[in-house]
Design a protein around this nucleic acid. Structure first.
Lengths: 358, 358
DNA sequence: CAAGGTTCAGAAACCGGTTTCGGCAACCCT
DNA sequence: AGGGTTGCCGAAACCGGTTTCTGAACCTTG
C-alpha cells in the first residue's frame, strides 16, 4: 500500500518502469541489470543483449536524477548567457539553442539555461550550477582574450567547451568559425573589385573574435600586397552609433578609403547613416562588407553584404563536443574550426573611377 | 577510504556539506533536520531555528536531484520553444529567458530549455521532460485558440502557465498582455488624428493573440462610433511579404483607408515596401500603427510606431506563477493581465487633407 | 493521581538507481 | 587430479536526501 506521490495508478499515469521491473522481467537482480545497461565488462554478452532487449521492450528509461545521486551526473548541458547592454547575440540565440537542444536530445541530455547581468553574476551562476550538479559541463559563448569563466572552470576541473577561442587555450576544448579567413577573403574580394584603399573598423580589444577578425584583415591585406595604413583603421565599434563615428573618421581623410570592412554587422549599419547624411551611395560610392549575418542587414538599402554563420550547426557541434568532454575525451582532441558563408547582397561594388563607374 | 567520484578532497573541492553534516553539528538525526528545514509541524520552533541557523552557517544547500528521488521535484522550470518557419519571438527570446531565469534563481529554481521543430516534437518533448522529471512544470509561450499542449498537459495533470490566453482556459493559469486595450487605443489615437477610415491587418485565426488584437480593434472602432467595414479588413499577415500584400489589397479600394493598424510588427514592415513602391510617405500619406515592438521597427524610415511589451518582466512574472502553481496554488488564482506601452515614433500622423497636410 | 492526549525527536525504511564485494562454476594449466 | 584463474552474477552497501513509524516525556483533565 505504498503511496508514491500524488498520482499513483491514476489511470492517467501508467506507473513508470523502474530498473527493478526490468530485473524481474528478465530474471536477474537489479545490480546486474544496471551493470548490463552500463556496459560493465563483467556481464556476459548474451546477458547484456537479453537485458537490453527487455529494457527496450518495457520502455525503460532511467531517471537522470536517480542516477545522479550516485554518479553525480545528470546528463545536462549548462549554458549561462550574459545579457547586458549591447546584447550582440540576440538574433542568433534561438538558432543556437535549437542546435544545442537538438544535439543534446539525441544523446538523451537536456539543457539548463541561466542568464546573468554581469561577469560576477556569470561566475557565481557557473559555480552554483556546477556545485548543485544542475549541469555536467558548460558551453561558453562569446569568449574573450582573457576570460574569467575559463580560469574559474579550469580551476574547478569542470568540463566546458568554448564557442570561440581565447588567449591561452591550454586545457580548453573549443569550436569556432574561421573568421580570419572570412576577413582575409573580404579583402581579396574588394581588391578584385578594384579597391586599393580598404579601411577596417575593428571590434575592440576584449572579445577574442574581434582580435581574430583584425588579424584576418591584416593577413588579407598582406596577401594582396597592400600595406595596413594606420589611417585606414577606424575606431573600434560594436554598435551602430560607434560604427557611424568610425566611418566619419575614415571618410574625413584626404585619401579616404573606397571600401570599409567592419568587424561586426551592427557597426556596419552606422555606415549607412553616414552615407545617407552625405549623399553617398553604399555599394557604389562606398563599399561595405561586414561579418555576422544579422537579419537587420537584409533590410538595409542596399542590403548589407556580410559573412553569415550557421549558428544552429555550431550549437549542435558544441553540444556534441561538450558531451564527449564530460565523458572523458581530452580537450586537446576537441577543437575544430567551421567556416562562414559570404552573402553578397549589394553593399559592395567596383571602386569608384574604375570599370563601370562613370 | 570511500572514493567518491573523480575528485574527492582535491584541495580544490572543499567537500560538499550534506544533511548529515548539519545533523551532526546540531546534534540531531538527519531525519529531524530534514523535517526542520522543510517546516514540518512536528518540530519544535526552537529546534527549527537552531537547525536553520546551523545549516545557514555551514552553507548547506540540498542537492535538488537527491531530493527529487523521493519527492519527484527537481525545482526546475521547463520551457519548450517551437522554432519554426516564421520564428516570431526571436528578438524577445533573450529578454524572456532573462526574466524567467532571474525569477527562478530567486527561488533557487533553474530553467530547462528545449526546442522543437514541429507541434508533434513539442508534445513529445513536454511529455518526456515531465516523465523524466527534468522539469516540475512548464511555461507555454505563444498560445493558440486551440492548443494541443494545453490539453495534453491538463490531461497529465502537469503544472503549467500560459504566456497568453486560450479558447477554453479551464484549469489554466496564465499571464498575458492586454493587447485588446492597446489595439483599441490605437484606433482612438488615429481617430484623434482625424482618420475615419482605419484599416486593420489581422494576424490569422490560430494564435490567440491574433484573435484578441482583432477584438481590440473592433472594440476601439465601436467606441469611436466607426463601423467595421469588411473592406477595411485586410488579409491575415504575419510576415513582411504578407503584410505588403495585405496593404496592397487595402489600398486598391476607392475608399482606401488613410491609416492601417497591423496586428504584428513584422507585417507592418510590408507597408513600408508598398509605400516606397508607390511614392507614399508613411506617417503622412499613410499612417501605420502596429504591435510587438520589434527592434527592426526602429530602423525603418520613419521609425514604426508600435506597442512594446516588457518581455523580461513577463518572463519573471510567469516564472513566479509557475512556481506557485507547482507548489499547489490553484490555477484560477494565477491569472493576470499586463499592459503594453505605446512607442510613438513617427509612422502615424494627421489624416491627409486635414490639419497641417496641404 | 491515574488515564489519556500532545509534543517532539529518534530509528529505520524508502526512493531508484550504482558500485563493491564475494562466491560459485567452469575452465586452464601443469 | 588438484590448485589457480577467469567469467559471471547475486547480495548488500551506498548515494543524499524524505517520510513513516514509534515511543518517551510532558501536559491535561476528571
Amino acid at each position: 500500500m505504498a503511496a508514491t506521490l500524488l498520482e499513483q495508478r491514476d489511470s492517467s499515469s501508467p506507473a513508470r518502469v523502474r530498473l527493478i521491473d526490468v530485473a524481474r522481467a528478465v530474471g536477474l537482480t537489479k545490480g546486474t541489470v544496471s551493470r548490463a545497461l552500463n556496459d560493465h565488462p563483467d556481464i556476459a554478452e548474451t546477458t547484456r543483449l537479453r537485458v537490453r532487449r527487455t529494457a527496450q521492450r518495457l520502455g525503460y528509461r532511467p531517471l537522470a536524477h536517480a542516477q545522479a545521486i550516485r554518479t553525480g551526473r545528470v546528463r545536462s548541458i549548462g549554458l549561462v548567457l550574459q545579457i547586458n547592454e549591447h546584447d550582440g547575440h540576440r538574433p542568433f540565440l534561438a538558432d543556437f539553442l535549437a542546435g544545442v537542444s537538438q544535439a543534446a536530445s539525441g544523446e538523451d541530455w537536456t539543457m539548463t539555461v541561466a542568464t546573468a547581468a554581469t561577469e560576477a553574476d556569470t561566475l557565481r551562476l557557473l559555480s552554483t550550477l556546477w556545485e548543485d550538479r544542475k549541469a555536467d559541463g558548460f558551453i561558453l559563448p562569446r569568449t574573450y582574450v582573457e576570460d574569467a569563466r575559463i580560469t574559474t572552470l579550469r580551476d574547478m576541473r569542470v568540463p566546458f567547451v568554448l564557442y570561440g577561442r581565447t588567449g591561452d587555450d591550454t586545457g580548453c576544448a573549443w569550436f569556432d568559425i574561421d573568421s580570419e579567413a572570412a576577413m582575409a577573403e573580404a579583402v581579396s574580394r574588394l581588391r578584385a573589385l578594384g579597391h586599393d584603399r580598404i579601411g577596417f573598423v575593428p571590434g575592440g580589444e576584449g572579445p577574442m573574435y574581434a582580435r581574430l577578425r583584425w588579424q584576418g584583415f591584416c593577413e588579407g591585406m598582406a596577401r594582396e600586397g597592400l600595406p595596413v595604413d594606420p589611417g585606414l583603421v577606424g575606431l573600434p565599434a560594436l554598435d551602430r552609433a560607434a560604427g557611424a563615428a568610425a566611418t566619419r573618421g575614415l571618410l574625413a581623410r584626404d585619401d579616404a578609403p573606397t571600401a570599409v570592412i567592419f568587424a561586426v554587422d551592427q557597426a556596419a549599419l552606422g555606415a549607412y547613416d553616414v552615407a545617407r547624411d552625405r549623399g553617398l551611395r553604399i555599394g557604389r560610392d562606398l563599399s561595405v562588407v561586414s561579418y555576422d549575418g544579422i537579419p537587420e542587414g537584409a533590410l538595409m538599402d542596399p542590403p548589407l553584404s556580410t559573412w553569415a554563420v550557421d549558428t544552429r550547426a555550431a550549437g549542435a557541434r558544441l553540444a556534441d563536443m561538450l558531451i564527449a568532454r564530460a565523458r572523458g575525451t581530452p580537450p586537446e582532441d576537441l577543437r575544430a574550426l567551421g567556416h562562414a558563408t559570404f552573402l553578397s547582397r549589394g553593399s559592395e561594388g567596383p571602386a569608384p573611377g574604375r570599370a563601370d563607374a562613370p
